[in-house]
């Protein structure tokens, strides 16, 4: 199970979320294990049966002003009861000040109180986006990711089939490389986001040459940090008995993180210009998303022609 330390979250987002810690620094040592946020209104009101204590808690103006309706003793007891569940941390929005009992108890019980100058709505949105991305399912896949005419194309295939060489050819034609050899794929709002698996520039191994630096050679315009993966192209050696797609009416699908993307099985053979075909795949994909399917249009015309022919045959 993936975990995020409160300290890491605080350090990374201090600036973006305008954060400061109210409690002592040692309270930042807790860990977060859930991406969801909780606004503990019901818990503050005393209903703790279904208290999502494992989540990051967030107090806004409503909660803080509600706390002011308590007597000192009652507030102390209620907060103590809540804190005993083991909350990772509490965010307080709009830079609001908290009751002194709360600060005392949080220090005692090692729960960080973090103040943000952002509004509740803004912090909730940003924080949950950050957490969701942090806890999103990720996996690394052997392949090369290239942005071709704005379509993220994941090139896969066995080692030595020519994925890097194909990407190099595409970069040379003005397209952009995201990752070579290993692509990290993150599930984001039901789409697949591809990034380099290592944060170490855009190096590439070309068989027989060695390591080359794509960014240095082709410039910043030839690379990208991230790109949504829309189509997979699987390069494979030509096999006589393989049933390659001839018309394109039937789509094959590849499932990554439960998201289906079209996959094209592309036979490669010496002398075949794979990068031009990948450009065509990209343009055809764009046409399809715009609602034009060439295979469908062609077969429709064919059927009309057959109909005319059949009237003549009668």
């Amino acid at each position: 199970m993936k975990e995020l330390s409160v300290k890491e979250l605080f350090e990374k987002k201090k600036k973006d979320f305008a954060l400061s810690v109210i409690t002592q620094p040692r309270t930042l040592n807790n860990t977060i294990s859930e991406a969801q946020l909780n606004r503990p209104g019901m818990a503050l009101a005393g209903y703790l049966d279904r208290f999502s204590y494992k989540r990051v808690q967030m107090l806004g103006e409503t909660e803080i002003s509600y706390l002011q309706t308590f007597s000192d003793d009652a507030l102390y007891e209620r907060l103590k009861e809540m804190f005993e569940y083991g909350i990772p941390c509490i965010f307080i929005t709009k830079g609001l000040s908290v009751p002194h009992q709360m600060e005392y108890l949080a220090n005692e019980m090692n729960i960080a109180l973090i103040s943000s100058r952002l509004t509740t709505e803004k912090l909730a949105l940003n924080l949950s986006q950050y957490l969701r991305n942090y806890f999103a399912p990720k996996r690394s896949l052997h392949g090369t990711l290239v942005d071709v005419f704005g379509v993220g194309i994941l090139i896969t295939g066995s080692s030595g089939i020519g994925k890097s060489e194909c990407a190099l050819d595409l970069v040379e034609r003005g397209h952009r490389l995201i990752a070579d050899d290993l692509v990290k794929i993150t599930l984001q709002n039901n789409t697949l986001m591809g990034t380099p698996a290592r944060d170490a520039g855009w190096f590439m191994e070309i068989r027989g040459v060695g390591i080359v630096d794509i960014e240095r050679m082709f410039g910043i315009q030839a690379v990208r940090l991230r790109k949504q993966i829309e189509v997979q192209v699987e390069l494979m050696p030509w096999r006589d008995n393989m049933d390659y797609e001839r018309i394109g009416l039937k789509n094959n699908w590849s499932s990554i993180h439960g998201v289906n993307i079209p996959v094209i099985y592309l036979p490669v053979s010496p002398g075949k210009n794979v990068s031009v075909i990948i450009e065509v795949i990209s343009m055809n994909h764009i046409l399809k998303t715009f609602g034009y399917d060439a295979a469908e249009a062609y077969t429709r015309r064919l059927k009309e022609e057959i109909k005319r022919q059949s009237r003549r045959n009668r």
Binding site: R246, L302, E305, I306, K307, R308, Q309, R312, N313
Partner: peptide, 14 residues
């Protein structure tokens, strides 16, 4: 050749 065969547009009775 698939394009070749489809060019015929052969109907029933052809």
């Amino acid at each position: 050749s698939i394009m070749g065969v489809m060019t015929l547009a052969a109907a029933r009775g052809s």
